[in-house]
Simulated scan of single mutants.
Amino acid sequence: METKKVWYVTGASKGLGLALIKKLIHDGYRVAATSRNVSDLDKEIGSNVNFLSLGVDIANETSVRASIEKTLQKFGTIDVVVNNAGYGQLGTLEETSDEEAHENFNVNVFGTLNVIRAVMSHFRQKKSGRIINISSIAGFLGGFPGWGIYNATKFAVAGLTEALAVEAKSHGVTATIVYPGYFKTNFLKQGSLRLAKNRIADYKEARDLEVIHDTQIIGNQPGDPEKAAAAFVTLGESKNPPLHLFLGTDSFNMANGKIETLQQELRTNEALSKSTDFVAQTVA
């Protein structure tokens, strides 16, 4: 009987990460899960021979490497990595301080890089592995006023994953970017979102979107976290995983809308786009 894969999941104490590790444990997988506070994980999962809870500072490379080593010591291998840890930084670009922007990148982007660097030597040695990096529809479609820094972190996750996919392919390692839409989790609540300290009332579009999130979207998100967890398991077992996966009907439709807009702009501006090429001179 084939042994179930070992999964390593970051940011697993709430939201999609928690839904995923609960599904994995229920299905008999071996799971290492990280959180800033290990007691949060233990409270949610309890004691289980197939579960390893890890208190990790995702932005600290030493802390991340230690968690990978502990996972290998307990389970002997790692098969699937899910980089899910992250948070939303709200505030227009003018409002957001340098410190606030750097911290969001440290967690959302450099935390993901820390995990990739720590696990790739193991994946290269065994010539197999799967990395699933959680971006957001905001990492493909950036037109959300007041979300610019968060958008930028998630675009960065998408960009580095595209590079990873071709860098690691010859080593038997696959990489997938997942772009979730709105799921009924606590992401839009305090603890997963941080507001810029220096607020500027003039930014009406950003303030209006904040009100929409608070009054219309929270509690009415269309995505089911348990179904998302099942989709992740399917992705982890797929023989030919996609590079890009838009998760949720809202994400899928928003992505299609941007693609249609891009295609229209390409057609409209084709002559201007190509006007910058060198033209070979004809010799009489």
Rank of each mutant, 00 (worst) to 15 (best):
M1Q: 11
T3M: 09
K4G: 09
V6I: 13
W7T: 01
V9D: 10
A12E: 07
K14V: 05
G17S: 03
L18R: 11
L24D: 10
I25S: 14
H26S: 13
G28I: 05
Y29C: 05
R30T: 04
S39C: 01
S39I: 05
L41M: 12
E44Q: 15
E44L: 09
I45T: 12
F51T: 04
S53H: 07
D57I: 01
A59Q: 14
E61H: 12
E61K: 14
A66N: 14
E69A: 15
E69V: 05
G76P: 09
T77A: 12
V80K: 04
V81E: 15
N84T: 09
N84G: 09
G86K: 05
G88W: 00
G88L: 05
E94C: 00
D98G: 00
E99I: 04
H102M: 09
F105N: 14
N108H: 10
N114Q: 10
R117A: 05
S121L: 09
F123V: 07
R124L: 05
Q125A: 14
K127D: 13
K127T: 01
I132Q: 10
I132Y: 05
I134T: 15
I137A: 09
G139M: 04
G148F: 03
N151I: 00
V157R: 07
V157D: 11
A158Y: 06
G159C: 10
E162W: 07
A165T: 02
K169L: 11
H171Y: 11
G172D: 10
T174P: 01
A175P: 00
A175E: 10
I177H: 07
Y179C: 07
K189N: 14
R194N: 11
K197V: 03
K197N: 11
N198F: 02
I200E: 13
Y203V: 01
Y203H: 12
K204W: 08
V211R: 15
H213Q: 14
H213D: 12
H213L: 15
N220L: 04
Q221I: 02
P222D: 13
G223K: 08
D224N: 15
E226L: 07
A228W: 00
A229N: 13
F232P: 07
V233P: 02
T234A: 15
G236Q: 03
S238H: 06
S238L: 03
P242S: 11
H244I: 00
H244S: 07
F252N: 14
N253S: 12
M254P: 02
A255H: 08
N256D: 11
G257W: 06
K258P: 00
T261L: 12
L266Y: 06
L266K: 13
R267C: 03
R267Q: 13
L272G: 03
S273Y: 09
S273P: 00
S273N: 09
K274L: 06
S275R: 01
S275L: 02
T276F: 07
T276E: 08
D277V: 03
A280T: 06
